[in-house]
Amino acid sequence: MVFMLIRAGQTAGVLLAAALVSFLLFRFVGDPVNNIVGQGASVEERAATREALGLNDPAIVQFSRFVGRAVQGEFGVSYRFSQPVADLIGQRLPATAELTLAAMLVALGLGVPLGMWTAIKPRGVLTQTLLTLSLIGVALPTFLIGIVLILVFSVWLGWLPAFGRGAVTNLGWWTTGLLTTSGLRALILPALTLGLFQMTLIMRMVRSEMLEILRSDHIRFSRARGLRRPALIYRHAFRNALTPLVTIVGLQFGNVFAFSIVVETVFQWPGLGLLVIQAIQFADVPLLAAYLLLVALTFALINLAVDLVNAVIDPRIRQEAL
């Protein structure tokens, strides 16, 4: 319980730090007054706007106000789109979230079983092939994989769309591409592109983790107890590989979020990544500040989830936690 409070406190601290960076960006990169009233405004107009925006208040007051608004999801109006930043992000978030989750699903769904296989059959032909292929997967840049996939499956074979999100269904607070065939088809290539690198990473990690655990004393002792192979591999070895796996997957989730910018650009996927690229080009500070906070929030929540899941798996962590 104390552990949970401490962790929650740490999370809040990290978020506050991110908010500070985000606030400094918002306040000191460019002049917000300029962006609102335009270059031609008179000095009096400027002063009035400055007063109205509260820019003359002490920094700490301004920061508190910024945090207070951020908590309510208010980040002001985008310079470029002249829309509330929260609305813009709300429109784009579902696309990125679905892409990221699908990519992680690909990475885990393939990476874990293949990693297990290569650990259990270390000398098999399939193992050697997979290990070689995975090296290529690690070495190839993500955008190149995307372009090759587009070339093969969209241009040559014409099976799958090369860009866009397909038809989406609006659920009110969320627009999903998962309910239409065209939406699902459009998801395949970007998700593969984004997930492939993670898959090879997870595969190699599961493999080395499993190999190490299979050599450990307690597995030897379990063998000496005559346990059956499935029990040995899943109940004993795999479960012990799970905590490092969960930790890595948590970290990678953040990376996938970051890499999604590349993939969204390649596939013209209408998500946050694409939005942020545009925001950077136009120095759209409110949007960037909000994105920064969102990324920090995502990381913080994932870390919290990793700690919780690991505490469920490992009684030693649980004991420390209580």
């Binding site: 450990s216 004393d217 307690h218 030897r220 002792f221 379990s222 000496a224 109940r235 004993h236 479960r239 012990n240 798996i313 490992d314 009684p315 030693r316």
Partner: peptide, 12 residues
């Protein structure tokens, strides 16, 4: 086995 600290599975 020799070492009871490592002979048992820590998660069960």
């Amino acid at each position: 086995f020799q070492d009871p600290m490592t002979s048992l599975n820590p998660l069960l």
